[in-house]
Write a protein that binds this DNA or RNA. Structure first.
Length: 573
RNA sequence: GCACCCAUAGCUCAGCUGGAUAGAGCGUCGGACUACGAAUCCGAAGGUCACAGGUUCGACUCCUGUUGGGUGCACCA
């Protein structure tokens, strides 16, 4: 099944073929900016007309004349300097939405899992608290994960955690020197983080601590049982804490293969690259020159081995590419990290090209999250930015609103709603923005429950469900959709556009497009709700039946879309 | 020094293979519950799209330059 835009684009290309203009890539039809120009428009006549040195308006008219009939289209006309405006058939829209409703899926059909994508996201460092700086990769990655799954991809979501490296030497030294067992039993990560920060402070005055840390790191890497035991323990307590947060935010992974997983691959990999001439020695270190494949990096090679023989994160990234290739043979690999790593990944991808790995790499980079004072959150800055605390604050705030607006619901139900609303608000506040723009972390904005926010979508869904519940109580059932009122039509069209929104969001790796669509859908429903009564003695039974079907379809579209962006579609709130 | 990113309403942001009168939320002002949930809806005010050129039927969008801000660039990740 094609989307509406695809359907119309196909029609336009058929018209062009009929006219003998074969071989042009046809501009995709797009929804019009305003309803006065119909529902969809094609701008192809401008380009084709220009190419054939023909007046665009005349070209558009010729194309309209050549359009084959289609049940979806009741009107195609030339407007302005050469736009072709399409008006869709109400009957066709009703049938389209009705079929999807009957099929129990409003989104685009998901083909079998023929293609595999690896999505690498979240990737926090262990032994540290997750703070709001980890939010973006986690949430954007989580949405891309669900988006691909929804579209039928075979998805491998991989949490490439930072569980190997020099921080463990520091931590081990600090553990021996200053640990507080009681605090560790109480809150392991908090204690580890305290030790890590403390080490940094002490090391300023005592440079020998750094030497000891390096020695401990070396012992860990050579397999010293005691250090390995400590390391294992630090990683485990971290994962327990991460899991709790992920579960709360509805984030899932298929595998958690951190940096340590590749530790034994690094030396052989660099040796092989040297042998193959891909990497070369440079001042005692080993680099991969990139100027030949990526001129921009002529002066910026990828460093894969330090002069002391140690590997770097670029080395791990290359080993990871190999492993994924060997294990899943993915059709594409998506990395979700902040913009600062852009050059790094370009270098890694360029190095891969040199090594003959050509699969499709996508770096989804997002802008920096800054605090209102302009600072970038780090493990050292303020405790209030601890992710768990932020979620707790959001849920507590939501609870106040729930108690105020829905006092009639049970305590348990209100708690559940507050959790969904609070966590959802945080997720949606981030996801509804274009990933690539920098964002200011504004707690008040994250907590806001008015306007274009998570509860707005949830509320629309709950209202749909409320009508459907009441209809069931009254014995009213849904029936064939007939779109008469302008808002019935508008709502059906909005529902029918879900597949387009999902595909646009997936193809451009921008979940905010789906959020924007859902906000529009919820708003259209709210206006429909105000203008078109569904139930009641003064409503024609056929009208009730039709509007019930439309309401059910709306609820289904909202639920599917909200599921992808990680919001729970509650039945009441 | 080299490279990349950003600048849109008072605030926070959409607008992305160039398309019709640049949109939304918040905030401000004014309206709408004797009918399915007012966590809602409607209306108003609010813009030299940083600036200057260029490309063309058409530029917030592409190109060049300027200003202002951010980020990255060999032994950290």
């Amino acid at each position: 099944m094609r989307t509406i835009a695809e359907e119309l684009t196909l029609l336009v290309s058929q018209a062009a073929e009929t006219m003998g203009h074969v071989g042009f890539s046809v501009d995709a039809c797009v929804p019009t900016a305003s309803a006065q120009h119909g529902d969809y428009q094609s701008n192809f006549a401008f380009r084709l007309g220009k190419h054939l040195k023909m007046n665009p308006r005349a070209m558009a008219q010729a194309m309209v004349d050549a359009l084959p009939p289609h049940p979806a289209v009741v009107g195609a006309e030339v407007a302005g300097p050469g736009f072709i405006n399409f008006r869709l058939s109400e009957a066709w829209l009703a049938q389209n939405v009705g079929e999807r409703l009957a099929a129990d899926r409003m989104g685009p059909p998901a083909p079998g899992a023929e293609k595999t994508v690896v999505i690498d996201y979240s990737s926090p460092n262990v032994a540290k608290r997750m703070h709001v700086g980890h939010l973006r990769s986690t949430i954007i990655g989580g949405a891309l994960h669900q988006l691909h799954r929804f579209l039928g991809w075979n998805v491998v979501a991989d949490n490439h955690i930072g569980d190997w490296g020099t921080q463990f030497g520091k931590l081990i030294v600090a553990w021996h020197e200053w640990r507080d067992e009681a605090a560790y039993a109480e809150d392991a990560i908090a204690e580890l983080q305290r030790l890590y920060v403390l080490f940094g402070e002490k090391a300023k005055a005592q440079p020998d601590l750094e030497d000891r840390a390096r020695a401990e790191t070396a012992r860990l890497q050579s397999g010293d049982p005691e250090n390995v035991r400590l390391w294992t323990q630090f990683v485990e307590v971290s994962l327990v804490e991460f899991d709790a947060l992920y579960q709360r935010m509805g984030i899932k992974f298929d595998v958690i293969l951190g940096e340590s997983f590749y530790r034994d691959d690094l030396k052989p990999l660099v040796d092989r690259m040297l042998a193959d001439g891909i990497a070369v020695d440079s001042d005692g270190a080993v680099i991969v020159p990139l100027g030949d494949v990526e001129p921009q990096f002529a002066e910026q090679p990828l460093l894969v081995r330090k002069s002391d023989g140690a590997a770097l994160y670029g080395t791990t990234d290359l080993a990871t590419v190999y492993y994924r290739q060997k294990t899943w043979a993915p059709d594409k690999v998506v990395y979700v990290t902040d913009m600062r790593q852009r050059d790094h990944f370009r270098q890694v991808f360029a190095a891969c090209r040199k090594m003959g790995i050509e699969h499709n790499f996508v770096h989804v980079y997002f802008g920096m999250l800054r605090l209102p004072d302009g600072a970038v959150p780090s493990s050292r800055s303020g405790l209030a930015l601890n992710l768990k605390e932020v979620l707790d604050i959001a849920v507590a705030h939501a609870r106040k609103v729930v108690d105020e607006k829905s006092g009639h619901l049970s305590d348990i139900e209100r708690a559940e709603i507050a959790e969904a609303v609070g966590v959802g608000a945080i997720r949606y506040a981030d996801l509804s923005q274009n990933p690539q723009t920098d964002i200011v972390f504004d707690l008040a904005k994250m907590l806001s429950l008015d306007g274009n926010t998570a509860p707005y979508l949830m509320y629309a869904h709950a209202r749909c469900k409320s009508i459907l519940r009441k209809a069931a109580d009254e014995g009213a059932s849904s029936g064939p959709m007939v779109l008469e009122h302008p808002l019935e039509r508008e709502l059906a069209l909005a529902v029918a556009r879900l597949p387009e929104a999902v595909l646009d969001a997936a193809n451009s790796y921008r979940p905010n497009l789906l959020c924007e669509y859902l906000f529009g859908l919820a708003n259209t429903f709210a206006r429909f709700y105000g203008a078109c009564r569904v139930l009641g003695a003064d409503v024609e039974p056929n009208t009730t039946a039709s509007r019930l079907a439309l309401t059910a379809a709306t609820a289904m579209a909202l639920r599917e879309g909200m599921g992808i962006v990680g919001l729970r579609a509650l039945d009441r709130m």
